[in-house]
Design a protein around this nucleic acid. Sequence first.
DNA 1: TGCACTTTGGCAACAGCGTTGCGAAAGTGG
DNA 2: CCACTTTCGCAACGCTGTTGCCAAAGTGCA
Lengths: 361, 361
Amino acid sequence: MGGVNRTNVGANLPALRSHNTALVLDLLRTAGGDGISRLELAERTGLTPQAVSKITGRLREEGLAAEAGRRASTGGKPRTVLRLVPEAGHAIGVHLDRDELRAVLVDLDGTVVGERCLPMDLGAGAEAVVEGVARAAEGLAESVASVLGVGVALPGPLDHVRGVLHRVTGFPEWDGFPLRDALAARLGLPVVVDKDTNAAALGLAVADEGASFAYLHLGTGLGAGLVIGGAVHRGARTGAGEFGHQVVQLDGPVCGCGNRGCIEALCLGAVRRGDVAEAARVLGVGAANLVGLLDIDLVLLGGRTVASAPEEFVGGVRAVLRERARGEEPVPVRIAPGGVRGVAEGAAQSLLAPLFGRAEG
Amino acid sequence: MGGVNRTNVGANLPALRSHNTALVLDLLRTAGGDGISRLELAERTGLTPQAVSKITGRLREEGLAAEAGRRASTGGKPRTVLRLVPEAGHAIGVHLDRDELRAVLVDLDGTVVGERCLPMDLGAGAEAVVEGVARAAEGLAESVASVLGVGVALPGPLDHVRGVLHRVTGFPEWDGFPLRDALAARLGLPVVVDKDTNAAALGLAVADEGASFAYLHLGTGLGAGLVIGGAVHRGARTGAGEFGHQVVQLDGPVCGCGNRGCIEALCLGAVRRGDVAEAARVLGVGAANLVGLLDIDLVLLGGRTVASAPEEFVGGVRAVLRERARGEEPVPVRIAPGGVRGVAEGAAQSLLAPLFGRAEG
DNA sequence: TGCACTTTGGCAACAGCGTTGCGAAAGTGG
DNA sequence: CCACTTTCGCAACGCTGTTGCCAAAGTGCA
């Protein structure tokens, strides 16, 4: 995690403070509108009530937290409920898809408070696209006092750390383009670039803290976002989640990637033939492989193709997982919530994540 | 990490102190016999030289670290080299295989300073096996002042957190046996139970700090130990690493697990037919799937079957990975160092790991 | 041989973290 | 109305890494 977590770096007092502050903010966020009391925060964090009081005191001074009524008494002074002040900060998330641009403005709570959607050809060239994204972001940012930054999600492999695109599938002219720096220079704001499936996974990870799950996205291609222990796993070269080109059929039909028997080729081939049941079965075999390998606790499905026959896909994948579980409780399969805005919302979350101690995987 | 890392728990001063201490100890360990100076420790940890001096001062008082000569001067006072005192602590690692028991005594450095190996039938019943392990451990512990604990590694699924066995493959009588508690009660020492592949992976992870790799073990079965970011990934139910029953051949030959087209069935089938090249190719396809999914940076091979034809297996797996890399630098494939003692050594490391801030994945 | 300079690393004072001790505030229940 | 419970802030505290400073221990040139 960001401050003190999972790193081989020394910790000092400021790091300790920001770690605990982020922890409290995260609990305030997940508590949502119901709020949470100081003593509950103390129990959940393991800190003493006094430490929580100091931390929440600072947060209230900064305007990030506020008192919000009180609980019923249990025989003594009733607990004061605290809540996050969502309007204290905003972030912009942009989903650059092949044919459209969708930008959302979210508050600290993750609630969408503004949205723009316009047609956009990814092949129109870097300058035009950067300008389009910048205009959309500026338009959204106008309505609020300050914006933490802009998260951009798009298909294809890229370098998440340096914010450089590799080979956006079907658009070779983007190869090597430093999207993050170009956009950051144009907007004067922090920018984070991420793969669309990872952004979607991050958005989904906000709800279930500490969970491990896979988000399988079946649209014009097939990809996955992996969340392990609450953090998006991107791998050493940000290339993790290459789910579509997992081989599940030795010497099977040739795939566009050059290999044989990739899930993507088999799955989309079946869809093209109208055999949704077979597509779901192949997807299920891949999902079962993934579940077995990583021992995750949830599989979420999304993407246009899945959306066209959600129940068949969920049912088909679920059947394979149940069969493989051999009597034990199978891993649940669900449609990913969030719909068409999921990727853009997740992209915005990549800016909010550090604030809540959810660092890079 | 243990104290402050990757957890949603609050941190206080003692946690901060133990985190930094563990960090310094870990650097002292990886420096090995060469030692490391205070200023290098400061650079590597990001702490100030003064903080490092205080920490190493405490370690020297406790006998865990010592001065070991000095570096050449660069124009001023030469740096004093510090090193870990390996004899300051020991741990015992036990590898319970189907037909033999191997126990090692290692010091803080991980060096094996004692070993016992005896035939042992896993089917001889819980009491007999526990007693055998206990005697071996006691025999090894005699020679040193104090032992941190005992790590036991064995095949088959188990609950690493609670130390309870599930279904040791081929030995149904072990189902549900609380091995950790039984052994801890018998020995009066902390005990950790782990799957053999995970223990081997942990042992290998000690060398490469922060690395992500997969250890593929091909013996009488096929399993994997996954190390992600320096920590062994066991998954929610300690079931991660089910590599052998990844399906890579839809509707392929039936496997012992009931599915069709599992890597294990295909791979061992080929070995049985004497077709090592095909076995290596199948293993390579599985490895490539894994590399693509997790974007790891290394594949290590081990186990009796691999050891019988190491170059063919490494070459075969490497060929598949190179083909899939499509021109980019392929992920390296190597034989896992450690040999027959690797699992036992890794089991011992699970006791040492917390001391060096390497916590449970 | 001596002196200027560089580098290491310990001593002491310090700021800031969560913790502890304690008491005021704000309820319930007889 | 009073005893009791529970919440929560103030103040003092212990301990962390940090900073300022200086002694120690080398090199290199005159």
